[in-house]
């Protein structure tokens, strides 16, 4: 794992002092955005977002509907490029490399994504997880089987599906389907995983499993999660950013955001006095 612990500790100390994180080339940030603007046609959805996503940690993005948090998440692997008339301005670095200059399929391999609604392919459990590997040229049967098993184990799903790998993915429960989608994303060994409200359709038990999984995965993968559930952000995230009307109002260690936020807007939102 490439996490530079001492640098992260320094970041945490800076944040304890209430100093907002500034993008800096030498930090151990996995993803860094600088003055990022985003447009849907003429509508400006993001206003000058500068944010460093620390490596090997979970970063949560919170804020009311329409605040831009999901839009921001989708810029981190250029998912928006499938949407017509969208445009991003500013800089995004992935490990200090210009994210806009990375070939798209290579970027999606390095930065995986899991969506609000689980979206398994109409294929077997095995083929879902093997899909990305096959697309990337891993045809060797033994290698495929090993990678599929490893991915399912990392997604904490192996024990539940090992005896029915060739059944349809649709035979799984909602929570299992979501973990299958995480396994599918993990199969190509991404450096970062973007989770867009991954538990919003799940019951508390399935949610707890996903949260436990997130806490284990961060040892090997940087995670950014968009969530409407503030308790979830508090439970799983090391860092939290609060978005409002397309702006990043505050970014800090999660404990600070939920105990002693610096901005009144953040305080009003996390205490439910918003609006």
């Amino acid at each position: 794992m490439s996490t530079n612990v001492s640098t992260l500790q320094n970041l945490a100390i800076d944040m304890q002092k209430g100093v907002p994180m500034k993008p800096a080339a030498e930090t151990s940030a996995k993803l860094v955005t600088t003055d990022l603007n985003f447009y849907y046609g003429k509508f400006k959805a993001l206003h000058g977002i500068s944010l460093s996503v620390p490596t090997g940690a979970v970063t949560a993005l919170i804020g009311p509907s329409g605040c831009g948090k999901s839009t921001f998440l989708r810029t981190l692997n250029r998912m928006y490029e499938t949407v017509p008339l969208t445009r991003a301005e500013g800089a995004i670095l992935l490990d200090n490399e210009d994210l806009f200059a990375i070939e798209l399929s290579a970027l999606r391999r390095r930065v995986g994504m899991v969506f609000q609604r689980s979206n398994p392919f109409p294929k077997s459990i095995f083929d879902n997880v093997a899909y990305g590997l096959r697309v990337n040229g891993f045809a060797n049967k033994a290698t495929l089987q090993e990678s599929v098993e490893q991915s399912l184990r990392r997604a904490a799903l192996w024990d539940e599906v090992k005896d029915k790998l060739h059944e349809s993915a649709y035979s799984l429960s909602g929570g299992q389907q979501q973990r299958l989608c995480i396994a599918r994303a993990l199969a190509v060994n991404p450096e970062a995983l973007l989770l867009d409200e991954p538990c919003s359709a799940l019951d508390p038990i399935a949610t707890a499993k996903i949260e436990e999984l997130i806490l284990h995965l961060k040892r090997t993968c940087t995670i950014v999660i968009v969530t409407h559930n503030m308790q979830q952000a508090a439970r799983v995230a090391d860092y939290t950013g609060f978005f409002l009307l397309g702006k990043l109002i505050e970014f800090n260690a999660t404990k600070i955001i939920f105990q002693t936020p610096a901005q009144k807007e953040t305080e009003d939102y996390v205490t439910g006095r918003f609006g």
Binding site: M230, Q231, A234, F258, Q259, T260, P261, T266, E267, V270, T271, G272
Partner: peptide, 9 residues
């Protein structure tokens, strides 16, 4: 109530 921020304090 799972209070946050000022309420929690």
């Amino acid at each position: 109530r799972q209070p946050m921020a000022g309420d929690l304090r």
